[in-house]
Structures are given as C-alpha cells and as structure tokens.
C-alpha cells in the first residue's frame, strides 16, 4: 500500500499546480511610468558619503560629548562614594558562615 503523502509533499503538489496560474505576461510600461520614475529620481538624489558625514558629523560630536559628560559624572560620584571594600566583606561573610 502506498503511504499517504506528508504535509510537505502535499504543499509541493499544491504549489506546483499553483505555478501554472502565475501570469507570465510582461506588458510594456506606460510612458507616464518612465516620467514618474525619472522625476522621483531627479527629485531625491541619493546623498553622497561626504554629504552624509557632513550632516551627521556635527550630531556625532555632540553625542560623544554628551556620553563623555555622563560617564565623567558617574566616575565622579563613584569616586566619592563610601564603599565597603571587598576583602572586608568576604571576611565577615566567612566568619559568620563557618565559625559559630
């Protein structure tokens, strides 16, 4: 007895039948189409790398300055904060945990 086809096999069969109905005509484009495409192309020329860098360069500098300022702020507050040093903390935990 022939085993029934799996879902993948049935899907393949379905798509192979569907392919027969995909239209394969390629009508010519209307003249207005070319005009529209060329008009859009001319209206929005893609920016060159130099233009892009010139535009983004200023913003990048300000972003870097802001990040540096925030980082400096963190370092300053961290430096002045009273902290328990790690060896002391470990020492206390060790004594509490193991020596009754």
């Amino acid at each position: 007895m022939k085993p029934s086809p799996t879902f993948e096999e049935r899907w393949k069969r379905l798509t192979s039948r569907a392919r027969m109905s995909i239209p394969d005509d390629f009508p010519e484009l209307p003249p207005a189409f070319h005009t529209r495409v060329l008009a859009h192309w001319q209206a929005q020329p893609v920016e060159s790398w130099e233009d892009l860098l010139a535009t983004l360069g200023g913003r990048a500098v300000w972003a870097v300055v802001a990040v540096c300022a925030i980082a400096a702020g963190f370092v300053f507050t961290d430096f002045h904060e009273a902290r328990i040093s790690r060896p002391e903390l470990e020492h206390v935990i060790t004594l509490e945990a193991w020596i009754p």
Binding site: L14, R17, A18
Partner: peptide, 15 residues
C-alpha cells in the same frame, strides 16, 4: 486528490 484543472484555485489557496 485535487481536481485536474484547478490551478487558479490552487494559486488562490497558496497566496
């Protein structure tokens, strides 16, 4: 088994 002459229907289901 799917009918023999129904490729537009098959395409409709696939899409």
């Amino acid at each position: 088994p799917p009918p023999g002459s129904s490729s537009p229907d098959a395409l409709a289901v696939v899409l």
